[in-house]
Design a protein around this nucleic acid. Structure first.
Length: 263
DNA sequence: ATGGTCGAAGGTCGA
């Protein structure tokens, strides 16, 4: 089973690229971020025509996450618990039945957090703390769990072409990296790093400054796996070629292959 | 030193 994450930076602007990639990559479950659309305006018909069920957690103008799945949803949960004031659409969980048992998949869009000297950074760190608590609870279920999304965290210096350029950025601040490590230390495995220690592997290249042409990228889109999911991991890859397409997203898909059979 | 690119908007904000 192929499970993917992709920040598509606007589903309406990216629908042709999305449909093309779905046909080419044939993922079973896709976690989307930054759909930048309310639920009613998500172009679900062409996606459903390819055999996907669609669940969205949208919002007007920005943010917004979704899960596309060839498996039927048994359950859907929207929003990261722990802050009743937080109205930003950044978290959706789907629960599925497979022949190999239950599978839980989250599409998350972690706050960017810039500028650091603002409430946006404390919002980011608070959100990460809530994610850590939520994950700790879910792990007690001892089920396969995939936390897939745009984490807006560069975990290590080798995850940036030029880490020195990011030292004062919320994506690479020690507090952000430390919080990401706390999540890993709960027992969550970084799928890509579990199969490869290859350098110069990035998932985001800024539209500005010719970042793509210079391969000035960062790795911030991750699939984090519970032990029961990591045990089934056989492969993981970054679909870099999509960044060279016409009208690309600034992020590319990351895909993990897990040994699950559809129910 | 400045502005450099996009998307969702239909002015500007978020990234």
């Amino acid at each position: 089973m192929k499970i993917a994450t992709w920040n598509i930076n606007g589903v309406k602007a990216r629908i042709e690229n999305l449909l093309h990639w779905l046909g080419e990559a044939e993922p079973d479950i896709v976690c989307l971020q930054e759909i930048k659309s309310v639920d009613e305006q998500f172009p679900r018909e062409p996606v459903e025509a390819l055999g996907y069920h669609v669940e969205t957690c949208g919002q007007k103008g920005f943010n917004g996450v979704a899960i596309l799945s060839k498996l039927r949803f048994d359950e859907v949960n929207r929003g990261l618990p722990g802050d009743g004031e937080d109205v930003q659409a950044r978290f959706i969980e789907g629960v599925f039945s497979t022949a190999s048992g239950v599978l839980r998949v989250v599409s998350l869009y972690l706050p960017n957090g810039n500028p650091v000297a603002s409430e946006k950074f404390s919002y980011k760190l608070g959100w990460m703390k809530r994610l850590e608590g939520w994950t700790r609870e879910r792990l007690t279920l001892e089920e396969p769990l995939v936390l897939a999304g745009d984490y807006n965290v560069i975990p290590e210096p080798e995850d940036a072409r030029d880490a020195t350029a990011w030292v004062d950025d919320a994506l690479f601040r020690p507090e952000s990296r430390q919080s990401f490590r706390r999540l890993a230390h709960l027992g969550m495995t970084d799928a890509l790093r579990a199969v490869s220690d290859e350098k110069d592997v990035y998932t985001f290249w800024d539209y500005q400054g010719g970042a793509w042409q210079k391969n000035n990228g960062i790795r911030i889109d991750h699939l984090m796996l519970s032990p029961e999911a990591a045990d089934r991991l056989s492969a993981a890859a970054v679909h870099k070629h999509t960044r060279a397409w016409e009208k690309p997203s600034d992020h590319v898909p990351v895909v993990a292959e897990l040994a699950f059979e559809a129910a």
